[in-house]
Simulated assay, not measured.
Amino acid sequence: MEKIALSPEVSLSRLVYGMWRLGDDADTSPAHVQAKVEACLAQGITTMDQADIYGGYTAEAIFGAALKAAPALRDQIEIVTKCDIIAPAGRHAAARVKYYDTSAAHITASVEASLRAMATDRIDLLLIHRPDPLIDNIETGAALDALVASGKVLAVGVSNFRPWDFDLLQSGMTTPLRTNQIELNLIANAALTNGDIAFHQRQGHPLMAWSPLAGGTLLSASQTPLRTALHRIGAEQGTDWSAVAVAWLLRHPARIMPVMGTNSLERIAHLSDACRVEMDRQTWFELYTHAIEREVP
């Protein structure tokens, strides 16, 4: 599978395995989690996407238990994780309200907690999970710079940031921000026209796309023409609708990396089918036209 270079130290697989719902599976044993990772590796999917908050602050430890049981896996994968969301759950159960914390103290403590939970000495890519209205770009930037200098984090980026949020944080840093993980799929397609993708494409930042299948709403009743087109194209190419929807993202020249989340071993085994879908320009626009429910101007 194609690898996308973020920095001299870090390259990610074009498809990323998302571990958002890792703790929701009926089987969270190390052996079962290891089976998921190995099913990804068999297809060349080497990047695992985590966040401290996933599973109510449990998903990193579930993943870490698998890495402890099979330590050889660590050098075959890249670990992405995120921080700055504090919700009243898990180790933050005493919080009165959900909020964001981009203080140096919190970011540093969160990284240390993630390293312990995942039984690793490094995080390949650390993302600030959400824009913080109270961000001190100088303090936050210095904290991220220090983590990279320490070797505990190899590269840094953001998630859900708009261009101005990205620029503000970058202005307080010497280390380059390498990527932005945004919601992007056939239905949540505003980034194509609101300047988000253009901003990063111009600067050469590969993007990560969360919820590339729109949480299943791609097949809702209100999207009947889109649903029909996805199924038809999938049948024509010997695959299913989900591979076509992901291929639509892969077709974009911004080097988008879809983050694919599922607990089904059968579905994991077919994640890379999207890489084999042929998506010419007219097919891309056919799907886009159905998604926006009108002809392009």
Rank of each mutant, 00 (worst) to 15 (best):
6 L>H: 00
115 L>G: 00
293 E>M: 14
170 Q>M: 03
297 P>D: 01
262 T>I: 11
210 W>K: 09
32 H>N: 14
86 I>L: 10
85 I>R: 14
69 A>P: 03
286 E>N: 04
225 P>G: 02
69 A>D: 08
250 L>W: 02
274 A>R: 01
131 P>N: 10
175 T>V: 15
195 G>D: 06
113 A>N: 05
265 L>C: 08
270 H>I: 12
244 V>Y: 02
230 L>Y: 05
53 I>T: 09
4 I>N: 02
70 A>G: 07
62 I>M: 00
137 N>T: 12
132 D>Y: 11
257 M>E: 03
261 G>D: 08
277 V>W: 06
23 G>Y: 10
209 A>C: 09
81 T>L: 04
260 M>W: 06
35 A>K: 13
31 A>L: 03
50 Q>I: 01
250 L>M: 10
1 M>H: 08
195 G>Y: 10
253 P>V: 09
10 V>F: 04
53 I>S: 12
220 S>Y: 08
247 A>T: 09
212 P>Y: 07
231 H>L: 14
184 L>N: 05
189 N>F: 03
113 A>E: 02
268 I>V: 10
134 L>G: 13
262 T>K: 10
58 T>A: 12
204 G>L: 11
119 A>L: 01
242 S>M: 08
118 M>H: 00
80 V>T: 11
240 D>K: 12
80 V>F: 05
158 V>C: 14
133 P>K: 11
48 M>S: 00
183 E>V: 10
145 D>A: 04
180 N>K: 07
191 A>L: 09
161 F>K: 04
103 S>W: 05
166 F>N: 03
151 G>D: 01
208 M>C: 09
278 E>Y: 06
155 A>Q: 05
8 P>Y: 02
26 A>S: 14
279 M>C: 07
48 M>T: 03
95 A>V: 07
188 A>L: 09
138 I>T: 13
39 A>S: 15
15 L>D: 06
43 Q>P: 01
93 A>E: 13
263 N>V: 11
256 I>V: 15
150 S>H: 12
182 I>A: 10
218 L>D: 08
87 A>T: 13
193 T>Q: 13
180 N>R: 04
125 L>D: 00
217 T>A: 14
102 T>Q: 11
89 A>H: 12
268 I>M: 05
26 A>Y: 09
108 T>C: 03
